[in-house]
Amino acid sequence: MQETGSEMKSRNKDKTAAPDDALLVAKNLEVRYQGSILVLKNVSFSVAEGEIVALLGSNGAGKSTTLKAISSLIQSEEGQVTEGTITYAGHRIENDDPVRTVRRGIVQVMEGRRALEHMSVEQNLLVASAVTGMGKAETRAKIDEVFDLFPVLAEYRNRQSGYLSGGQQQMMVIGRALMTRPRLLLLDEPSLGLSPLLVSTIFNAVVRINREHGTSVLVVEQNARVALKHSDRGYVLENGRIVMEGSRDELLGNEDLQEFYLGIGASGSKKNFRDVKQYRRRRRWVG
């Protein structure tokens, strides 16, 4: 018999969740926009050193807000962590300066790619290395590393990045993030608008970054199947609350997740979470 989300959530606290001394620990996070619009409520999760963690959820669940709360980019959208804590490598970082957050080793690749469109591919990479104060030799080596990871970028190194394809831009912005020497990479919807082949290329590169550099990754995705396939653990966010968490295999085997996020109904028929009323999902997950 399949476990419900609430059963799995409580069990995972003992078995699969990263320890409290993990690289990143968010505890009882509450985030509000303009001081009043509540977006995240009592959200707790963690990312251990060298781990890939998926944060799944539908549109408006609060996934991007969670990433921006970690990177502190939420501040320029008039958002703020109003309760709870975010601890990274032993330092409290909630509502910190985004510049300091990057220097600590956290970098976010924002949704929608956000290439510096009027700059060339190489200049995009140089901007990120300039921030860290990297020397010329190290910058060169890092750029070569990025081109080794995404060979197509080497071909277009002098091309204005605004004229790259969506997939190439996604590769470039991930490569650009690597230029900051991150210890924790935050990826927001890296598969958005890309073909299955490109999505696979991107995620394989993410796994390679994780394996070769030990970089921890927190990836936000609506494409649950792809995200879980490449992750060690995952969390499901609904309406600003974590409703399910577990290891990759546990989540992939979960009936609710299969039904609402992988589009496979219990009877074998495909069903989307939008087809099921909110109260029914909450009843199943929160108990």
């Binding site: 320029s76 985004p98 901007v127 921030v131």
Partner: peptide, 21 residues
């Protein structure tokens, strides 16, 4: 280097901030 960072800011405040500029 500083000129490059300032150009990044002109492209987008938020993207520049996300890179630590």
């Amino acid at each position: 280097r500083i000129g490059l960072l300032m150009t990044a800011v002109a492209e987008s405040h938020q993207t520049a901030r996300s890179l630590g500029v």
